[in-house]
Design a protein around this nucleic acid. Sequence first.
DNA 1: TATGAATGAGTTTTCATTCAT
DNA 2: CATGAATGAAAACTCATTCAT
Lengths: 238, 238, 238, 238
Amino acid sequence: MNVHSVIRGRRKAATERTAPVASAPKSRRGRGRPRVDDKARRILDAALRVFAERGYHGTSVPEVAEAARIGVGTVYRYFETKDELVNEVFRDAKIRLRRYLLDGLPPVDPYKLDMAQRWFGQLWVRLASFAAAEPDAFRFLEMQDHVAYLDAHSRQIELAVLGPLWHAGKQLRDRIGGLPVDASIALLWGAFVGLIKANRLGYIRLDQRTIEQAGAACWRMLAPAPSRASDSKTRTKG
Amino acid sequence: MNVHSVIRGRRKAATERTAPVASAPKSRRGRGRPRVDDKARRILDAALRVFAERGYHGTSVPEVAEAARIGVGTVYRYFETKDELVNEVFRDAKIRLRRYLLDGLPPVDPYKLDMAQRWFGQLWVRLASFAAAEPDAFRFLEMQDHVAYLDAHSRQIELAVLGPLWHAGKQLRDRIGGLPVDASIALLWGAFVGLIKANRLGYIRLDQRTIEQAGAACWRMLAPAPSRASDSKTRTKG
Amino acid sequence: MNVHSVIRGRRKAATERTAPVASAPKSRRGRGRPRVDDKARRILDAALRVFAERGYHGTSVPEVAEAARIGVGTVYRYFETKDELVNEVFRDAKIRLRRYLLDGLPPVDPYKLDMAQRWFGQLWVRLASFAAAEPDAFRFLEMQDHVAYLDAHSRQIELAVLGPLWHAGKQLRDRIGGLPVDASIALLWGAFVGLIKANRLGYIRLDQRTIEQAGAACWRMLAPAPSRASDSKTRTKG
Amino acid sequence: MNVHSVIRGRRKAATERTAPVASAPKSRRGRGRPRVDDKARRILDAALRVFAERGYHGTSVPEVAEAARIGVGTVYRYFETKDELVNEVFRDAKIRLRRYLLDGLPPVDPYKLDMAQRWFGQLWVRLASFAAAEPDAFRFLEMQDHVAYLDAHSRQIELAVLGPLWHAGKQLRDRIGGLPVDASIALLWGAFVGLIKANRLGYIRLDQRTIEQAGAACWRMLAPAPSRASDSKTRTKG
DNA sequence: TATGAATGAGTTTTCATTCAT
DNA sequence: CATGAATGAAAACTCATTCAT
């Protein structure tokens, strides 16, 4: 269980975020030659940072440009409008979230309850990793709940994350009962967001241990039976 | 236990919003005669609605005025700046939240665990009531986490809500262990917010039963011991 | 030679300025009963004060109303528009200036040069009296040199002041030569204005003596011959 | 002695206004190549024109922009606020006035009275030149006597003009007596302003000769003794 | 008659977007 | 390509004027 490092309330320089982007597969290794999408990347990262800080409407395009250390006009060479920009930022971040959460995540085996718990633990750690590694992305995604300017494509991406989780949750739920899957996901995601927010606002100070405890608590939330129960036998129906 | 009605994604006329407003011009109070047409009230309500919908920066003052069915200039007769307006809206909403949550809430008696659970249940219902009765207020408060434009006074109000909860949580925690209080509150509040959001976004459909189930789940989150623990006696299933 | 008192840089409470107004001849002495035109008077005085201070465009009607200690609406009961108000203020002030300058001023007798000088001295004192007694009126008139919002009537009043002076000046000039009358008046009025302004701005401190000296200087300006010369013989041309 | 031409009531294209402007963006200076089209310059000139015409509060920023033949937004690229603009216009004009008056003006030699008179004559001509070449600047400066919106810097510039004149005046006064220096300057400046105003308002028609006559008259105002004194040696009486 | 709350046209200022360099 | 100066549409805010009380 490794959350990289303690999650910090303050953002960290968005360095080296060049790799995990979907739209930049072109692996250039030309010497010094700037890879084609370098600028777009810079803009996306900068925009994420400032949008996360001040919100979409609270941020001007010049501010984005400045954060990206490029000219204003350049922004418009890569993104038609501010609107398109925010949508790309959204999808970009969402896809990274997806990768953090789902890439290589083993399927749930609902028949082994302790495995299910372990599976959940893994999910939790991945979530924490994401929030720790990309605080701005997390914060940004958190605020953009289907706001008016998100287009169809962006909303669709949402499902690409939710879908697999929902499916896994479904299997678990069939096995251990509890809340409807959607509600569970809502509670879970909400709880995690609450944790991160509280950390950001200084209400709490997240360390490794607290994160684990919180994960355990959330597991209890999901499973109607005591998670630490001697075995998974005595559960009635749920 | 009454959640008024199923929580709807859409707003409903804000009921019983009689709270006195700081800058309300005249407030001559004929006995029993409800204040004829408090403009400041109208503006606060309208502003809450549109701010909740589109956010502070995403809303123009004319939009607020239109929502309140008054002229733009009138807004400025009651609130010096847009900034002051949003702060008053915030405080106004926060105070109403406080009323919903805390007014008449009995103190926790941590020595009777089942009472503690009942106490928590009550809190949960109150929260649900608020979210149901004032969806806009809930949504608005949710988005304003210490954003730049909240002034000192507004932030201070925040504590007036958190304080008592924190205190009660502290007692509980001393009794039943579990997470640090702040983390618990964060998880809890987050979970609830997640639920409401999911409902608003159409991911789930909140009914009375789901709300109760979710409350039970959250209680499990708080209590490290099996909620159905041998001792707390009479608890059946929850 | 009495200039009432040393001219002060700061305005003085516009008290008791009820008497010398053309349009308020109705001598009421009803006990306590407010005289009919009281309000209009109050407004004119207040408007003069604030206009003199901040200029026409720099002053709002509410500010005028507040200065007059009446409601905004009331202003409009007495003056159709802000524009009309400023014109009435102008005429009112100009008429008072005229009274100060011309009422009872003896005709010039150009054949006695020392009398002419005395005549001029009197004019100078009257001017100083006006500036001392009504600093706001003086300042206000000074700034309104045929600005766009002055209507025909107001400009016409101007001539009612200038005319007689011009006529007297003409006689003088015919006798003692010197500059064209218009230019003389321009220089003279300008010099006096400069004096008062410098006093208001704190560049100089006007006392009785300085005023007199300045008057003497101005007389020298008008008369090509040494003013104190034994007689008016030796002057060649100038 | 050249006053360029008869002073006209209407403005004329501001010539030789090359003064560098503080906030001018780029000022790349090709040798000899006159700066192509300094926007800040254009704005300052246009603003001077309209401010001189209608005053600061009577002029809207769009009017300035239109006079400068540029977009409104552009004004704000060069001047943070309307307030800053008017201050820069003021300083700019004042500095030009200073140049006209003082650049290359020989020091007074108070021991040769006729030279002093010649010195004064030169000053007078320079003043007239300025008023003729830059009627708007003259008019504008005339109206801005320490109005509220002038900042510290602007007021300080004022002294840069007054100082040298005061000093020269002091020397003269020590020699030939007369009014206190400040009062003399006030009268003199006022007289000149009066002349120009009268011309602008059409009361008089300024030609070369009248200007000279007026200058002579003003010299008489300064010098208590007859200006045509037999020579500058024997002047006693003073 | 006196008032001041209400208002929308108009003012100052910002900002997404374009385009000449 | 990259840039940032230029711009006008739109936002925040003001104020002359009206009108119900």
